[in-house]
Design a protein around this nucleic acid. Sequence first.
DNA 1: TTGGCTGAGTCTGTCAAGCAGACTTATCCT
DNA 2: AGGATAAGTCTGCTTGACAGACTCAGCCAA
Lengths: 157, 157
Amino acid sequence: MPEAMNWSTENCTISRTMEILGEKWTFHVLREVFVGVRRFEDIRARANIPRQVLTDRLTALIDRGLLRREAYRIPGQRERYEYRLTQAGLDLYPVMVALVHWGDQYLPLDSGPPLSPEHRGCGGKVTVTLQCDAGHVPTPREVAFRPGPGATRRKVS
Amino acid sequence: MPEAMNWSTENCTISRTMEILGEKWTFHVLREVFVGVRRFEDIRARANIPRQVLTDRLTALIDRGLLRREAYRIPGQRERYEYRLTQAGLDLYPVMVALVHWGDQYLPLDSGPPLSPEHRGCGGKVTVTLQCDAGHVPTPREVAFRPGPGATRRKVS
DNA sequence: TTGGCTGAGTCTGTCAAGCAGACTTATCCT
DNA sequence: AGGATAAGTCTGCTTGACAGACTCAGCCAA
């Protein structure tokens, strides 16, 4: 029996994270904001999201602190709102880059990646690397999820 | 107008990736397999997934090449099946580690992280780092998604 | 050899979510 | 005053999630 069977899944980090990020369209919304598209109608049209769903997702992302709603005004036009990443949102960069990297590897387009993360200024391509705090760079097979300090035991029948 | 508005979202990598990973419960299933839980009934009970949904997700993940179904037999018992990560599945490690890291930072438990990625053997904690190919380690704010070779122009009204 | 147990599902009916398309509101421009 | 536009809300339909009962095969014990 795998060792993990002894540990509870009650409040697993993946569950808690997926409560926010796991709904349909959430990553599409985030993608738009990450590439700099910040207005309701632009996001809706580009990502092809049903309006009602976009409203729900934006509200949820604001409630959870990933986005903030900010008024802006183009001179000579009325006030509008745009949605911008908070620090919590920005810190999803590693997740986004890792997802895009995986997608480009396993679901490639003939024409190459349509989206490419770059280091501003230096212009180098950005990737994401596994790194252990002893300085090693492990391959996936050399990594394992273990119970951490917050793990609780589980009754296993 | 943000520059990204000129580029199509037709076949964006995030969209194509989310077609596989974006359904409800998919990441819960992956979590179980990542921590070493591989049998239908164990996954179902630990993650609390409706049976029908688990069947659907496992089938989809096999079709898409992230899992494979493998027969095994405990001596003196009949043949059973287990679900194991393929290389494509294993290569989601950076995504999983990044998600868990983000969750532990922004949705922390008082008791600490319940799940902790470790380097097998050395035992060091594993994290995920943004890195540009010139060797820099950029902060999120220094990274930007740009159109890559596969990007196509978009008619913008 | 019958009856029970278990793992791995399928089947059925209910309920929530996603969806398309029409409608609404406020503000600006002409 | 009339029209355009951004950012929504409203309505009815369809799909997906869900709980709980049922199935089925193979082994085990009496």
